[in-house]
């Protein structure tokens, strides 16, 4: 066992346990806090994959901004009281578990086909900082998708304002 494996195992355990917590816990506030822990452990996994900038953005945008939005809406709508009627499921719960198990088994079967040359990293050990991402984003092939995604964000912001307004 080397350090990388120990770190991966620790973070994977935290991520899986907290993801189960998101689903199992009834109180939405507790689910949100578990989701924050999942996001942090995934950010650490990004760091172990040398995706430094993406990990930082994960912490700032996901664990910061998006989770604040979630908590804010939970508080605003006074939803922190847990679910009341859980017996009105249109679909039995075991069907959901069965579907998820089937999905997991299909993905696991697909993992067998991953080429062996992908198993060990061959990249040089450089960290991907903002400079690399920025050069790729603004100078290489990704400029047009970047503009499209910025328009999408603008439309979403305007749409959210229109939806949340009292009177349109």
């Amino acid at each position: 066992m080397n350090g990388q494996l120990i770190l991966f195992a620790l973070m994977a355990t935290i991520a899986v346990v907290c993801a189960l917590g998101v689903v199992i816990l009834d109180n939405p506030v507790r689910s949100a806090l578990c989701l924050v822990l999942v996001l942090f452990s995934v950010a650490v996994l990004f760091f172990t994959l040398h995706a430094v900038f993406v990990g930082a953005v994960q912490i700032i945008v996901y664990a910061g901004a998006i989770m604040v939005l979630f908590i804010f809406v939970i508080m605003l709508l006074n939803l922190g009281t847990g679910e009341v009627d859980k017996d009105r499921l249109a679909l039995p719960k075991w069907a959901a578990y069965l579907g998820a198990a089937a999905t997991l088994s299909v993905i696991s079967a697909a993992l067998v086909g991953v080429p062996q040359s992908y198993i060990h990293p061959r990249l040089a050990d450089h960290l991907t900082g903002p400079d690399t991402i920025g050069m790729e984003l603004f100078q290489a092939n990704w400029l047009f998708p970047f503009e499209v995604i910025s328009i999408l964000l603008l439309v979403a912001a305007i749409g959210a304002v229109m939806l949340a307004k009292k009177r349109i």
Binding site: E83, L89, T103, I107, L111, V114, I119, H120, P121
Partner: peptide, 30 residues
Amino acid sequence: ASVPLESYLMLSAILFCIGVVGVMIKRNPI
């Protein structure tokens, strides 16, 4: 010596399936 790729893929598959279960069994849209 590092973590094999399959570990990351398996972890993300597990997380994805936990998310699928949550979408199907939870009643609270948040």
